[in-house]
């Protein structure tokens, strides 16, 4: 399986680079913590109020921190010319891209997943909803990475693409936010959330199968400039 070997080698490469730039990896995480902490400061520490907004706050903070971390996805590859080498590899670009997105998810979302129960508890989210929160984040954050990667790949050729990227990607994040935060809300009320979880799982499968092709096509367009 030469393609599999390439996949693993690239995954290792990205994790190694991330490990050597640990401080950059920590930035989105710090951002997540700080944004979550802003809400009790801004609207007052009333336990009931916080409990009501907790699902939405954690999810919005996770979404924004995912958005913030997107820039590291293909930008440096584009600038230093490694993207050309990736595109010119005989291996399918769509597979190469999955390795890249997966590494990005491990670096940006996995630490956030581990922190989210703490942040949710700080916002007074009932303990019975923590499992649902984790489940929705596990299913939802890879979708954020995949969709975000399409946006990044499309805007690589532009000099200052940050705002445009946000405008492109945020509308596509909305369904994930609705089902993710909605499920946690319902779980906090003690109701079953199977429906929302299934929809998030379906979105994950959809994005994991279709997004790599869109990302590959967009990257090819970017390197042709």
């Amino acid at each position: 399986m030469p393609t599999m070997n390439t996949f693993i080698a690239l995954l290792k490469r990205d994790l190694l680079i991330a490990y050597r730039n640990r401080s950059e990896v920590l930035n989105p995480l710090m951002f997540f913590v700080l944004v979550t902490m802003l809400f009790p400061l801004g609207i007052g520490p009333s336990p009931n109020l916080l409990q009501n907004i907790a699902p939405g706050v954690v999810w919005v903070a996770a979404l924004l921190s995912a958005l913030l971390s997107l820039d590291s996805l293909f930008r440096s590859d584009y600038d230093d010319g490694s993207l050309e080498q990736l595109v010119l590899s005989p291996r399918p670009l769509a597979i190469i891209v999955v390795a890249r997105v997966l590494a990005h998810w491990v670096m940006s979302a996995l630490p956030l997943l581990l922190l989210s129960p703490i942040m949710a508890t700080a916002l007074n989210l009932p303990v019975k909803a923590l499992g649902t929160l984790l489940a929705t984040l596990v299913l939802g954050t890879p979708v954020l990475s995949f969709i975000g990667a399409i946006g990044v790949a499309l805007t690589l050729g532009l000099k200052r693409s940050g705002m445009l990227l946000a405008l492109l990607v945020i509308p596509l994040y909305i369904p994930i936010l609705i089902f993710g935060a909605g499920a946690v809300d319902i779980a906090a009320a003690g109701l079953p959330v199977t429906g929302q979880i299934y929809i998030l799982a379906a979105l994950l499968i959809l994005s994991a199968t279709l997004a790599p092709m869109a990302i590959a096509a967009a990257l090819k367009m970017s390197v042709s400039q």
Binding site: P2, N5, T6, A9, L10, R13, L16, I17, R20, N21, S76, D80, G81, S82, E84, Q85, L86, S89, P90, R91
Partner: peptide
């Protein structure tokens, strides 16, 4: 050059190997 500044010379070449094989 298509080199990763955070990888050593040997690691950079290993990636090139993995991409072409």
């Amino acid at each position: 050059n298509g080199l990763k500044e955070d990888l050593t010379a040997a690691e950079n070449l290993r990636i090139a190997q993995a991409l072409h094989a």
